[in-house]
């Protein structure tokens, strides 16, 4: 492991009201690496991502990005930090009222005073990187799901961020688009010299591209390791997840009172 970590999370707790979401998370994301956070839906993956991005603040514990405590920043410093972050949202979150070109140019227009010719060159370069140079004049509504995801990716890397975050980048894609996006994530990470965090539950695709994996369940980290270590893991939960078995430590039934008791209760009410 390299000495320097870009993101350091220690003893992180977070709860919505009385409902705890994260219970004592510890994670380190080393510079230059592509790290996946995996787990079932609702295990707190996305919440972790939002805590790193500063959209929400930790209840207790600390989230440090590049040595700075994210929860302690005021709005201005947070915005300064976010300029160095890129995020790809689940369904792209393209601005529907702007063309593909304007979507990618958005941050350049908002944060820089670059002349139009420079912006044009940059936008075309980013679109070329995701293979959509020819689509610059289209509106988001004219794109397929995979294309929209790639445009969103071009938009996220518009200002060459040091940290890229992907929130379920594979959700709802066909196998080919899925492989394309997966490859792009890996390639862009290496080309930009960025650090990437990939939140996903698509285990097969992500194991092909990531350096390191954190497994989460019920708000805690249950396993971690490299892709090979995870594949070889004998932990029952990880095994069930990797091989997609329907029963195991994660049961098919939602927690409930035993069925028999429920029936008896009904009878008692009826009487």
């Amino acid at each position: 492991m390299p000495a320097e970590n870009l993101v350091e999370i220690s003893d992180l707790n977070f709860s919505y009201g009385k409902h705890p979401i994260l219970k004592g998370i510890n994670m380190n994301i080393p510079r230059g690496k592509l790290v996946a956070i995996m787990g079932l839906s609702g295990c707190g993956k996305t919440t972790t991502l939002r805590l790193i991005g500063g959209s929400i603040r930790p209840t207790t514990g600390s989230v440090k990005v590049a040595g700075k405590e994210v929860g302690g920043l005021d709005t201005e410093d947070l915005y300064t930090m976010r300029r160095k972050m890129g995020m790809l949202f689940q369904f792209g979150a393209l601005f529907t009222d702007l063309s593909v070109y304007e979507n990618v140019a958005f941050q350049m227009r908002e944060h820089t005073d670059l002349p139009e010719t420079v912006i044009r060159d940059l936008v075309m370069m980013k679109l070329h990187a995701v293979g959509l140079l020819g689509a610059h004049g289209l509106m988001p509504s004219e794109l397929s799901g995979g294309m929209a995801r790639r445009v969103a990716l071009a938009r996220a890397i518009a200002l060459d961020p040091m940290l890229m975050m992907y929130d379920e980048p594979f959700a709802g894609l066909d196998p080919i688009s899925l492989a394309v996006i997966g490859n792009l994530i890996r390639r862009l990470n290496d080309a930009l010299g960025a650090t990437s965090i990939l939140v996903t539950h698509d285990i097969q695709e992500s194991l092909k591209i990531v350096d390191y994996v954190y497994f989460m369940a019920d708000g805690v980290v249950v396993a971690e390791g490299t892709a090979d270590e995870i594949k070889a893991s004998r932990l029952p939960f990880v095994h069930q997840f990797v091989w997609g078995e329907s029963d195991g430590p994660v049961s098919f039934h939602y927690p409930s009172a035993p069925y028999r008791e429920d029936l008896l209760l009904e009878l008692a009410h009826g009487a």
Binding site: G53, S55, Y79, T80, R82, R83, M85, M87, F89, Q90, F91, A93, L94, F95, T96, F106, Q107, E110, H111
Partner: peptide, 17 residues
Amino acid sequence: LMKATEQIAAMEMMAVD
């Protein structure tokens, strides 16, 4: 709709109010 499709959140993450 901008909120539902996370466009508002995306804007915030791009450091735009």
